[in-house]
Simulated assay, not measured.
Amino acid sequence: MYFEDINYEKHEGIATITINRPHVYNAFRGLTIRELIAAFRDAWDDNAVGAVILTGEGEKAFCVGGDQKQKAGEGGYDDQGGLGMGIGLEVENLHQTIRNIPKPVIAAVNGFAIGGGHVLHVICDLTIAADTAKFGQSGPKVGSYDAGFGSAYLARIVGEKKAREIWYLCEQYSAEECKEMGLVNKVVPQDELQDAARNWAGKILEKSPTAIKMLKYSFNADSASITGISQLAMGSLAMFYNSEESEEGKNAFLEKRPVDFQKFRS
């Protein structure tokens, strides 16, 4: 399979999906989302694959969310056939694919996991982080949000108060801080990250695939109601991207100037 924005390989029952846009800190555009979905579905259909590792190219970033330079057109990230008005549908589809694939997904966070990239690791079954990794939200700073799994499911992991802090303040947290709050399972030195992820994937491969599948379904069942919330949230997000308020967030980011949301409070 040929991909432009990601690398995808399968070896000894482990599928590794790497977001390969290091020049923009592995930010995603429409094409990236579609390729991620295709790779996860291939791993889903391959009975020889028992675990999936999701990571980012290089040492600087896992993923920093949507590429703001591609945030154009009607309501979303627009490249050649980009997300456009379909942003909610395509990102939501990726989230559901990661949750529903009947095989554990391990996020190997090698650097910044910010914004939509932070949501991706939250949705993964397990997270192993490099000791240099940084985590946090940026949505409200740039005129965006994830009011579905990125917030509601996050609250189930770290608690309501901490989740609100993460979203309202948009600060960054170290890998160790995230481990303390239950958002990260394990922290390792940067040069040991991929080996640690493969080690855990290998341990999963030693287990009963049916047992693992049913356990994942059971874990997911408790938070399945968030799916409906996510659909509403992504639908509203597509409309919000057409607003002047959202444009102010994007433009301030691209122009490297302080954002001014005060005029939207009147």
Rank of each mutant, 00 (worst) to 15 (best):
A233P: 07
V184C: 03
W200V: 14
P140E: 02
N100F: 03
F264C: 11
V109G: 05
A221H: 05
G75T: 10
V91F: 12
G81T: 10
T210V: 15
K71H: 02
G65A: 10
I19R: 01
M239Q: 13
L36N: 00
A152N: 13
S243Y: 07
L31W: 03
L94P: 03
K256Q: 15
T18M: 15
E192V: 09
I87G: 12
N47S: 08
L120Q: 02
V91L: 15
C63N: 14
L94W: 02
V105Q: 08
P209D: 13
N93Y: 05
E90F: 12
E180D: 12
V142W: 00
L126C: 06
P22I: 13
D45C: 05
K213M: 14
L154D: 06
L94F: 08
D125K: 02
S138T: 10
A152M: 09
G202W: 04
S144P: 03
G58N: 12
A221W: 06
L254T: 13
D131N: 07
T32F: 07
K134A: 09
F149H: 10
A147S: 09
G116W: 11
F253V: 01
E171K: 15
G111K: 08
M181H: 07
C170D: 05
F264K: 10
T132N: 13
A221T: 01
E4S: 04
R265H: 08
G82D: 10
G143P: 00
S230W: 11
E12L: 12
A113D: 02
N251R: 14
Y8I: 05
N199R: 04
T127W: 01
Y145K: 02
R265T: 08
K141L: 11
N220S: 06
Y25A: 08
F28C: 02
A39T: 03
D131T: 01
K10H: 00
D195A: 15
G249L: 12
A72V: 07
H95C: 03
A196I: 04
F240N: 09
K256E: 14
S246Y: 03
S230Q: 07
R257Q: 11
A51Y: 04
A27D: 07
E192G: 09
Y217M: 14
G88I: 12
L169S: 06
G143A: 01
N7K: 15
N251W: 03
K134G: 03
A130V: 10
E247S: 08
T97A: 01
I87E: 13
F3W: 06
N26Q: 10
T55H: 02
K71C: 03
R41F: 01
A201D: 03
K134Y: 09
N242D: 13
N47A: 12
A133P: 01
T227W: 13
P22G: 13
E57G: 06
I157V: 15
E245C: 11
L120R: 00
Q194N: 06
A175Q: 01
D260L: 05
E35W: 05
A48H: 14
N100W: 02
G65T: 03
D131M: 00
G30Q: 06
S230G: 08
A221E: 11
C170F: 08
L237H: 12
G88H: 12
K60F: 14
L183A: 03
Q262P: 00
G50Q: 05
G88R: 11
R198P: 07
